[in-house]
Amino acid sequence: MSHSAEDTDPGLPAGDDGETRRDFLTLATAALGVGGAALAVWPLIDSMNPAADTLALSTIEVDVKGVKPGQRITVKWRGKPVFIDHRTPEQIEKAQADDAAGLPDPQADKDRVKKPEWLVLVGVCTHLGCVPLGQKPSQPRGEFGGWFCPCHGSHYDFSGRIRKGPAPTNLEVPQYQFLNETTLRIG
């Protein structure tokens, strides 16, 4: 028989040894419990990351054999349009010459391509995410001949660089490599 609950606050010292033991036990148990709970939450969070089938589609291979100089094609990659532009010698020349023009987001044309005749861009305006026009010959290409975003009037040049309008940066160049002369792997 000892005291009832009211006169024993479990937080108060109950003799030195007991107190140390409980402190250690409480800390160790709490650490284990909190750690375990955190680990248990991870699967729930990670389940919202891209699934294996989504990741499997995150690289695509594109055959560009049939794309003639001056022609542009659009492919879908990771849910977004990718512009592949087979540039003509004149367009390449113009793009390189403009390296020295006053660019809002300065970048040399040679740093934006792997082969000068092939320009590969993520077709999403860096302003607010619209898809710029210019892939079809019938569409407006803006003042600099590249692409024109109809949403807020951003103009891109032959290298996909922002030249005029509200977009802050150049069109993004995705990761890609040439598997051979005419096959591109994007992603």
Binding site: S47, A51, A52, D53, T54
Partner: peptide, 13 residues
């Protein structure tokens, strides 16, 4: 089945 196979930890959940 996609949850069971492709979603991260989907089988567990």
């Amino acid at each position: 089945e996609r949850i069971m196979r492709d979603v991260n930890y989907g089988w567990l959940i």
